[in-house]
Nucleic acid binder design. Structure first.
Length: 153
DNA sequence: GCCAACGTTGGC
DNA sequence: GCCAACGTTGGC
């Protein structure tokens, strides 16, 4: 079992949206590095659900992978915001996942607080200029964040 | 809304 | 293969 972190703009899709519907497709990723991480995910893997481009950027909860990577249908849909004219049914470079809600944190663990944690200094998330939207999380980092979360409630 | 940093595109 | 121009991300 592996750990990950995935970013989403809460205006588009938030941890509460996932909680409401229970399970959802994670799609629209259009970056090769992020896509490669998605393809490395296995059923049962856990991920931190991160809220980006919003008033309070930070980790908002936990989700679980319930279906491994498959071709992202939004790349083929001309109506979709994520439509890729270069993709075809035969050759679709983009991947989607099915994810399930696991936990919504009572309070978002804010980015500025995460940045203060020396245990998390290696995470792309806290590094200047990094825009990676899907990234691996080490067991140590996962434990450190879980501890931050537990310590506050 | 600004802008730094990054990824992608395309001419050469 | 280089690199300038452009588009996007995402914090602030």
């Amino acid at each position: 079992m592996a750990y990950w972190l995935m970013k989403s703009e809460p205006d588009e899709f938030s941890i509460k949206d996932l909680q409401k519907i229970g399970e959802a497709r994670w799609d629209g990723v259009r970056n090769y590095q992020a896509r490669n991480f998605m393809r490395a995910m296995a059923v049962g893997d856990l991920f931190f659900f991160y809220h980006s481009s919003c008033p309070e950027p930070g980790i908002a909860g936990i989700g679980r992978i319930c279906e491994a990577a498959y071709p992202d249908p939004t790349a083929l849909d001309p109506q979709s915001h994520y439509f890729d004219p270069k993709a075809s049914a035969e050759k679709n470079p983009w991947s989607a996942l099915q994810v399930a809600h696991e936990q919504t944190f009572p309070r978002v663990i804010k980015l500025d607080y995460l940045k203060q944690q020396t245990a998390l200094a290696e995470m792309p998330l806290v590094q200047k200029g990094s825009r990676l939207s899907v990234m691996p999380v080490t067991p140590e980092q996962w434990a450190a964040i879980a501890e931050l979360q537990a310590a506050r409630d």
